[in-house]
């Protein structure tokens, strides 16, 4: 049985802050920050937006894009590291808001930036085993970064929802492969408002080891090579890491170009790689193959080999593209950003 993407929807809040504005506050050199990270600005949630509201907007676009009857959705999994409740699922809020209740299973996932792709894999399993008709996997975050920490320059807000099924596919997921080890490169302790990280340690033993191993593992499993794919998408905590991972694996700049959304969006954590895939699906043609590798600290990588089908043309215009969601931003200064992010405690 073929399993794949029946529909997808993305949502990005309209507010942005330029990295130079953040650098100005903390006395950093703006050129060295934007040049080093290869990120110019990042999205900022509105004051009444959180992971749940973003997940709902993305889910609604995913449902409306393909005109899906939401009662067919038998599972909803929302991946995030900023769920609004420590105990009380985001996924039930989404399920109610898209009218998918009550005949479904739902749960929240957490695996740093790859909780959303873990949700895709879970839905693939449930669909392939005929337990459910359709499953929805969401990656949504209002990413946290402590004031003055390196993460603050990229921690952004956004979400993406994928509807996984076996009929009327817009893109077939040919195979998936994961690579997981216990690597303490990034964490947030219970009750703490901001995550901590291992600085440069997050690079080699964290991101690159897992991304490259998962990607190579999947290509070995399928007997494919980078040249067999039209596009490639990697988790993008900044602009540098996905470019270097692509280079290490043998993917070209052209292959990763449509999926690099971090430059004007920042790192949407659980939404990051899934947003890059959405941006790539927005422009992909039937027959195109897309190689996707997500990464979550802690640490693990999920790789996917995707082939776009004729069905993509039918759903392409049904919801806003990632490019259109990035247009017409409203820029805020650091004070407004701090208010929106709840960094000013009232």
């Amino acid at each position: 049985m073929s399993v794949g993407i029946v529909s997808y929807g993305a949502y990005i809040p309209r507010y942005r802050i330029k990295l130079e504005e953040i650098a100005k506050v903390w006395g950093d050199d703006p050129a060295s920050i934007t040049g080093g990270l290869m990120v110019l600005e990042k999205s900022v949630p509105d004051i009444d937006e959180d992971t749940a509201t973003i997940a709902v907007e993305a889910a609604r676009y995913a449902v409306s894009r393909a005109g899906i009857d939401a009662s067919r959705i038998g599972a909803i999994y929302t991946g995030s590291e900023s769920h609004p409740y420590a105990v009380k699922p985001t996924s039930t809020i989404v399920a109610e808001a898209i009218d998918a209740t009550p005949a479904l299973t739902a749960a929240d996932f957490e695996f740093a930036c790859k909780a959303g792709t873990a949700g895709i894999q879970t839905c693939m399993g449930l669909v392939a085993s005929n337990i459910i008709d359709l499953g929805m996997a969401i990656g949504s975050d209002v990413a946290q970064g402590a004031p003055g920490d390196a993460l603050e320059y990229t921690a952004a807000a956004g979400g993406v929802a994928y509807v996984i099924g076996s009929r009327d596919l817009a893109a077939e997921i040919e195979a998936t492969y994961s690579y997981t080890t216990d690597t303490p490169d990034f964490w947030r302790r219970e009750g703490m408002p901001y995550p901590e990280h291992g600085g440069r340690f997050t690079g080699e033993p964290g991101y690159f080891k897992h991304v490259v191993s998962a990607a190579r593992g999947l290509m070995d499993k399928l007997g494919t090579k980078p040249q067999d794919y039209n596009y490639a998408v990697f988790h993008q905590p900044n602009g540098k890491f996905p470019r270097r991972a692509a280079q290490m694996l043998g993917f070209s700049t052209e292959q990763i170009k449509p999926g690099i959304v971090v430059t004007l969006l920042g790192n949407t954590y659980s939404g990051s790689c899934m947003m890059g895939l959405a941006a790539t699906l927005d422009i992909a043609k039937p027959g195109d193959r897309i190689f996707v590798t997500a990464f979550g600290s802690g640490a693990g990588s999920d790789a996917f080999s995707i082939r776009v089908t004729d069905g993509m043309e039918k759903i392409r215009g049904g919801a806003p593209s990632v490019e259109s969601l990035l247009q017409n931003p409203v820029y805020v200064n650091y004070a407004i950003y701090a208010k929106h992010k709840g960094k000013i405690r009232l």
Partner: peptide
């Protein structure tokens, strides 16, 4: 219409979601 937070009971209480 959009889906937003309408308010919250308190910092420890439930969050009210709904339409704006």
């Amino acid at each position: 219409s959009v889906f937003r937070k309408l308010g919250e009971e308190s910092k420890h209480g439930i969050i009210y979601y709904g339409t704006k």
